[in-house]
Amino acid sequence: MADPITKSTRKRILFIVNPISGTRGKESILHIINNTIDNETFEPEILFTRKKGDALQIISEKIAEGFKYFVAVGGDGTVNEVGSAIINTDCVMGIIPLGSGNGLARHLRIPLDAAKAIQVINKLRVESIDYGLVNGLPFFCTCGVGFDAHIGYRFAKEKGRGFFNYVKVALTDFISYKPKKYKVKIDGTQKMKVKAFLITCANASQYGNNAYIAPNADIQDGLLDIAIMSPINLLQAPAIGAMLFTRTINKSTVLQTGKAQKVVIKRKREDVVHFDGEPIIMDRKIKITVVNKGLRIIVP
Results as ranks from 00 to 15, higher is better:
Ala170Ser: 11
Leu171Asp: 10
Leu171Arg: 11
Leu171Ser: 12
Leu171Phe: 09
Thr172Gly: 13
Thr172Val: 08
Asp173Asn: 14
Asp173Ile: 01
Asp173Lys: 15
Asp173Cys: 04
Phe174Ile: 09
Ile175Phe: 07
Ile175Cys: 07
Ser176Glu: 14
Ser176Gly: 06
Ser176Pro: 00
Ser176Ile: 06
Tyr177Thr: 01
Tyr177Gly: 01
Tyr177Ala: 06
Lys178His: 06
Lys178Asn: 10
Lys178Val: 11
Lys178Pro: 00
Pro179Ile: 14
Pro179Asp: 06
Lys180Phe: 00
Lys180Asn: 06
Tyr182Pro: 00
Lys183Met: 00
Lys183Asn: 04
Lys183Trp: 00
Lys183Ala: 00
Val184Asn: 01
Val184Tyr: 10
Val184Trp: 02
Val184Thr: 03
Val184Met: 03
Lys185Leu: 05
Lys185Gly: 02
Lys185Glu: 11
Lys185Gln: 10
Lys185Pro: 13
Lys185Trp: 06
Ile186His: 08
Asp187Pro: 12
Asp187Phe: 14
Gly188Ala: 15
Gly188Lys: 12
Thr189Cys: 09
Thr189Ser: 11
Gln190Ser: 08
Gln190Glu: 12
Gln190Met: 05
Gln190Ala: 08
Lys191Pro: 08
Lys191Gly: 03
Lys191Cys: 08
Lys191Ile: 00
Met192Glu: 11
Met192Pro: 06
Met192Lys: 13
Met192Trp: 09
Met192Arg: 06
Met192Tyr: 10
Lys193Gly: 03
Lys193Leu: 03
Lys193Ala: 05
Val194Gln: 02
Val194Leu: 04
Ala196Leu: 03
Ala196Gln: 03
Phe197Arg: 06
Leu198His: 09
Leu198Ala: 04
Leu198Glu: 01
Ile199Asn: 01
Ile199Val: 05
Cys201Lys: 14
Cys201His: 07
Cys201Thr: 09
Ala202Glu: 04
Ala202Gly: 11
Ala202Leu: 05
Ala202His: 09
Asn203His: 06
Asn203Glu: 04
Asn203Lys: 10
Ala204Glu: 07
Ala204Leu: 07
Ala204Val: 09
Ala204Pro: 05
Ala204Asn: 07
Ser205Thr: 13
Ser205Ile: 15
Ser205Leu: 15
Gln206Met: 15
Gln206Val: 11
Gln206Cys: 15
Tyr207Asn: 02
Tyr207Lys: 05
Tyr207Phe: 12
Tyr207Leu: 07
Gly208Leu: 07
Gly208Met: 02
Gly208Arg: 07
Gly208Ser: 09
Asn209Lys: 03
Asn209Glu: 13
Asn209His: 13
